[in-house]
Structure formats: C-alpha cells, structure tokens
Amino acid sequence: MPASVLQITDAEFARFRDYFYRRTGIYFEDSKRYFVDKRLLERMRHTEYYSFRSYFTFMRFQASGQEFQQLVNCMTVNETYFMRERYQFECLVEETLNEIVQYPQNKARTLRIWSIPSSTGEEPYSIALSLLEYWPLIEQVDVEIVASDIDTHVLDRCRRGLYSDRSLMHISQDIRDRYFLPKGANQWQLCQDIRDSVLFTQVNLADLAQTREYRHFDIIFCRNLLIYFDEPARRRAAEVFYDALNPGGFIFLGHSESMSRISSLFKVRKFNKALAYQKPLD
C-alpha cells in the first residue's frame, strides 16, 4: 500500500487502544482518534511498516521495546509552563500541606518538597509561588524546596530563571509584576529571592548511590516522567520515592500516570482538587 493512503480502521484503533492502555494506563477516548491515528501513521511511515498489522506486530514483540517507547513519546505531550495542571498546586496549598502540618511529629519542623524532574524550573518555581501567594501558614512554617534533574543544562537554565511569555501564560499580571523582571522582548526573569529559595541538584533516579541521600521529604512532585520509563525503571523509581518520603508524605504524578499500576506501597488519596499518593503513616 502506498504510504500516502495509509489509514487506521476502527478495529485497529480499538486494538491499539487496548494494548496501549494495558502497558501505560493511558486510555484514549474516541474523541482522541485523530490525535492517535496521526501519530501512529507517522511511526508506521518512519519505520517503513506500511500496514497497521505489520507495524503492530513489530512494535508489540520488539524485545528492546524501543519502538513502543517512541510511541509513548509521541502520544504524550512534553510541554512545561508555570502552573501547569494548576489544580495540583491548589491541592498542595489547600489540602495536603495542611494535613502534613497537623501530624504531631511535624510541629516546629521544616517541611521539605522535592520536584523531579525540574526541567527548566517552571514546576519548582510554581510551587514556591503557590506557597507564598496561597498558603497562609508559610508565615509560620519553614519550607525547603529541592528540584532535581538528570540534565545539567536545564539546571543551569533553572538557576538563571529566564522565561518567555508562553511559559508565563497562566501567571496573572499581578504576580508577574511582583516576581518577574522584564528582560528584553518576550523574556522575563524570576526575582533573585525566589530563585534562591530552590536548591537545584543533578540526580539520576536509576542510580542507587545518588538517590540514597534524597530522604525526609513531605511532598514529591514527579509529573510526566514515569511514563517515559520502562516497567523495571518505573518500579525502581517508586521505591526511591517511597524511601525519600516521610511517613504520611504525598507524591503527585502527572494526570495520565498512576502509582497504583506501579507499586502497592502507596495509598491513593482523593482530595477535592486532585489525587495524590500517600506513604502510609505506619
């Protein structure tokens, strides 16, 4: 069949959808059909498999899993900006932190938050801004924010704190005026005080020795990372997070990710605005 007339039938879409769901937990509604078809066809052309059947067989049974991972990369949106999935930051300051400070062992103690991967800094800085703007207890409680990434280049960008208009599209003008300085056309720099409030570190989640020292956190944000890991790496990461959290601590994952599919160590907690996974109090 010529590459130009490739198409995905309803039955093929259903078959792919079932398989992808079983492997990743991501379920594509019928409304996502165009999105899925477009990316599947791109991968079929790229790998030169000109029927769904031959492509699916190749992808499904490839021992290395490389093509499946390529599909995951295509099917997930890798974009970051301030306050992405805002409801999780709201859940942080309206619900989870308030619960954590109630535990007797947490009285008069610094709370610790870990953001991984930090990417270019939008997530850890969104956490900082959320705490300062929307968590009244910040006047009474000390908070440390640690942000980590495997890529040292993005850590340098985090420390510089330079962002485009697009990165700030969900930041109100008022907050922009108070925390950002204009730096030329469409560029804004986060003020020094906020940049100084986040510790940036390089870490590889797969490296036992590196992750050993990441402990005693109350909150972890790890959004849209595990989806790019294979099953063993995902399980290992869940173990690292379990050891990194204090009892009663919470982890937030990306909206398409589920800890329940990776590890039974965490308890699912449904808050008003978001879902989080909790390390049991013991």
Binding site: L132, V143, L199, Y214, R215
Partner: peptide
C-alpha cells in the same frame, strides 16, 4: 518563617538526621 534560602553547603538531606541503618554511605 518562609521559604528557606538555599545555602551553598546545603545537601538534599540537609535537615535530615540519617540513622545508622539508612546512612548516607553504602
């Protein structure tokens, strides 16, 4: 009380007291 400022000597476990069983060394 506020967001704590990063200090150059701060490590990821800066406020943690490592116990013997879970020490920072292997």
């Amino acid at each position: 009380m506020a967001l704590k400022r990063v200090q150059t000597h701060v490590q990821p476990t800066s406020v943690a007291t490592a116990d013997a069983a879970q020490g920072d060394q292997a």
